[in-house]
């Protein structure tokens, strides 16, 4: 559950004062979202764990430098993670698709094995399509649809103007439409309405 900015501010102040439980509280609040973001950008479980850890360590070490008047703590934390992810895929060049993770995704609402298989297949298709996007487009898409952020927040995290964030989401959308159309979308919808 998201706490209010004031509650987060109090927790941050306690952490700066040396309260270890405050650090844990901040971690528990943001860890799952941050890990999902890292996984969405890197598409690799091990890399996502490493980057999430790096981002938290950096944030906790520099907690006194966080300015609540400039951005929400979540925005600041996600900006650190996006920057770390960029460093990593600059080194890797190509995203490493973690097939083990993809094939073990849970299949919600799947009552039959066939439906579960179809769900997984649909999820894999989206993940593979995501992997073919350029890092900037992937970032925009994951932040917009994976985390439901506004264009303003996306622009802050990506370090670009809001219009650029909007056009990146649009371009990513168009690229995915070309990749997934028409056969795959039909498959996705056959899963949805079966």
């Amino acid at each position: 559950m998201d706490s209010t900015p004031m509650q987060t501010g109090v927790t941050i102040a306690q952490a700066i004062a040396g309260d270890q439980t405050a650090y844990q509280q901040l971690y528990e609040q943001y860890a799952a979202g941050l890990y999902r973001l890292c996984y969405g950008l890197l598409l690799n479980r091990q890399d996502a764990e490493d980057v999430a850890q790096e981002a938290f360590v950096y944030a906790f070490k520099n907690l006194q430098r966080y300015d609540s008047s400039r951005a929400a703590f979540k925005t600041w934390l996600y900006t650190i993670a996006v920057s770390r992810c960029r460093n990593l895929y600059r080194r890797h060049r190509h995203p490493l698709l973690d097939l083990a993770q993809i094939f073990h995704l849970a299949a919600p609402c799947a009552e039959t094995p066939e439906a579960a298989m179809a769900q997984r297949s649909a999820q894999d298709a989206v993940t593979r399509a995501l992997g073919t996007l350029s890092p900037r487009l992937r970032e925009a898409l994951v932040l917009r649809y994976g985390h439901g952020l506004t264009y303003r927040e996306i622009a802050d995290m990506m370090g670009c103007p809001q219009k650029t964030a909007e056009s990146r989401v649009r371009l990513a959308h168009e690229r995915l439409r070309d990749l997934l159309q028409p056969a795959l979308l039909e498959e996705l919808y056959s899963v949805e309405f079966s």
Partner: peptide, 10 residues
């Protein structure tokens, strides 16, 4: 589809 598939990813 993206709104449905991306949040549970990872």
């Amino acid at each position: 589809e993206l709104q449905r598939r991306l949040p549970p990813l990872g």
